[in-house]
Structure formats: structure tokens, C-alpha cells
Write a protein that binds this DNA or RNA. Structure first.
Length: 304
DNA sequence: GTTCTAGAAC
DNA sequence: GTTCTAGAAC
């Protein structure tokens, strides 16, 4: 049985924090101009981690119970004159990996619930890249529509002029987890997708498709709603292209139909190989040797 | 999922 | 020389 561990973070200014711990280590991630730089800090015997203003303490998983205590450095020798960081462009973009514990004050304590079972598989850790949609869907800045059953967000890296994701609030990890009782939910997601399309200012000149990736990278079932211009700087690789233009992209209607007839969704063996197939224009089937040449070619089908 | 980059392709 | 891809790392 795991005992509760605690970490005291000494802060010199009240700062915005996210708290994270992984088997006695605390990762301190400095966001801002270089959001990928990470300092890994061993928690000392006294469980104290000194943090500079603006640094964020992330919870890597939920293996341990925490209490975080935020204190002011009494010596004033550790950068106390520095200002806490202001929100950056990256922040406004909205894709944080875990919920924020906002503006902790000196005496604030934050308890993080423990869920041992869900934290056992590495790929299911909160904060792992493949869990990003869970954070995004709950971020009000990302939501472009929501109701009791679903939320719609813009894809963070859109592969076309319009690219939304429709996600159910209900936690369904992948297509494999779908059962016939989910048919109603999936049909609702389809209707919401259609509403998004109808609200689009270019609806009359733009073709959309609604569907699921056969083997998505990101956890949590999500319906892609994507315009067929594929005019986006984020579309960069063969994998991107083939994931939206081959049978790797499964029409929403087909998923619902599979569920209604078989009670579950099955994906053809070897479907992942489709991602490696040669590049072919989805409009005229012309074969192109490289992604840049393909992107140049499809411009002719979708003049601005 | 993205980013980074070595080395293949040109 | 530059462009582009594919695989590792995250």
C-alpha cells in the first residue's frame, strides 16, 4: 500500500502552478519562450523543491497523495524581485497538459486524489502526450460548442482550413471500447458535426468529411470534421495525408453501421500500412512524389 | 500527436 | 549544395 507523500514548494512570489510527481521526482517545467525545456529535480529528504517564480510543478501521474504548501522565501535571496510570468501566446493557444491549480496563495494547500489502478499503465498517465485531448476538451478556451453529451474543439494542428474534433464527455478510450449502446451518442456526435459544418461561412463552397482514424494516436474517442481542401501548414507528412485520404479514415456513418450490425467496431488487419502508401491526390488521383509537391498540386483544386 | 535531425534523395 | 523523409524522443 502506498503511503501519502508530500512536497513543499518554496515560492518567492505567488505563481500559477501545476503540480506533478513521479516516484519521488518532481519535474519542474519552465513554460514560455522555450516550453520544451525541462528541469528534473530530485525531491530532497525534506520533500522541499525550490521553485523560481514562473516555474510550474506538474503532476506526472496520480500514484501518490500530495499536499502542496506554498511559502514565501524568508531570506529574500532567491529572486524575489522577479515578477511572476505573464500568460504567453502558448498559454492562450490553450493546450496545457493538465488542469491548472490557479494562482496559489502563500497558505494554499492542494490535495490531489489518488487513483492507483488508472496510473499503472504508462501510456495512460495523465500528462502523457496521448492524453492531450482530455485536457483540451475541458479547457473553455478550446471549446467551440458543448452540450450535455459532447464538446467540440478546434484541432490544435488543423490539417485543413476547417478541422474540428467532436468528443463525448463520457470517457471512451478508443473505437475498440465502443458497443451498440453507444450508437445514440455517436449519432448525436454526427448531428453536432453537421451543425458545425452548417455554421461554417464557407459551407456552400466547401466539402467536409466526418470520420474516425482507424488507429488514432490520441486517447479518447474523437470524431474528425475536416474540410477537404487540406490547405494547412500543419499538414506535413505522408502519414498526415494518408490518415485523412485513405480507408484509414473511417466514415462516421460506417462506424455507426458497424456498431448496429456487429455491436462493436473492428478494423482491418494491416490497416496501418495505408499510412505508408504512395501519395495520391484525393481529387484526381494524380500521384505525387513528395508531400510539398502534393500540397502544391492540390492548390489547383482549391483556389482561394 | 509534434519536434528534431541524420541521412537519403535529389 | 538543398530538400525531404523517417525514426527516435517526448
Amino acid at each position: 500500500m502506498l503511503s501519502a507523500a508530500s512536497a513543499n514548494a518554496i515560492l518567492f512570489q505567488p505563481v500559477e502552478l501545476q503540480a506533478e510527481c513521479n516516484k519521488g521526482y518532481v519535474k519542474v517545467r519552465q513554460l514560455g519562450s522555450n516550453p520544451t525545456s525541462i528541469d528534473s529535480v530530485v525531491v530532497g529528504k525534506d520533500n522541499v523543491v525550490k521553485m523560481k517564480p514562473g516555474q510550474q510543478l506538474h503532476l506526472v501521474n496520480q500514484l501518490y497523495q500530495y499536499t502542496l504548501e506554498f511559502k514565501v522565501d524568508p531570506t529574500g535571496l532567491h529572486g524575489g524581485s522577479k515578477r511572476p510570468r505573464e500568460p504567453t501566446l502558448d498559454d492562450r493557444d490553450g493546450h496545457r497538459e493538465s488542469p491548472n491549480l490557479k494562482a496559489a496563495k502563500q497558505t494554499d494547500r492542494v490535495s490531489v486524489p489518488v487513483n492507483h489502478r488508472e496510473a499503472t499503465k504508462t501510456s495512460e498517465h495523465v500528462g502523457h502526450w496521448n492524453q492531450g485531448l482530455k485536457a483540451s476538451m475541458h479547457d473553455p478556451q478550446m471549446q467551440v460548442y458543448k452540450d450535455d453529451l459532447v464538446v467540440v474543439i478546434k484541432d490544435k494542428y488543423p490539417k485543413a482550413r476547417y478541422h474540428w474534433l467532436v468528443l463525448p464527455w463520457q470517457s471512451i478510450s478508443s473505437l475498440k471500447a465502443l458497443r451498440d449502446e453507444h450508437c445514440g451518442l455517436l449519432k448525436h456526435m454526427q448531428r453536432v458535426a453537421d451543425q458545425m459544418i452548417q455554421k461554417c461561412p464557407d459551407v456552400h463552397s466547401t466539402h467536409f468529411r466526418k470520420g474516425y482514424h482507424a488507429i488514432p494516436s490520441m486517447s479518447h474517442v474523437h470524431l474528425h470534421v475536416i474540410s477537404q481542401d487540406f490547405d494547412s501548414p500543419c499538414l506535413k507528412t505522408k502519414k498526415h495525408w494518408n490518415s485523412f485520404t485513405t480507408d484509414y479514415f473511417i466514415e462516421s456513418h460506417d462506424i455507426v453501421q458497424m456498431l448496429e450490425t456487429n455491436g462493436r467496431v473492428t478494423v482491418k488487419e494491416g490497416i496501418i500500412e495505408l499510412l505508408k502508401q504512395s501519395l495520391s491526390c484525393h481529387m484526381c488521383h494524380k500521384e505525387l512524389a513528395t508531400v510539398p509537391s502534393l500540397k502544391e498540386h492540390i492548390k489547383s483544386h482549391f483556389p482561394r
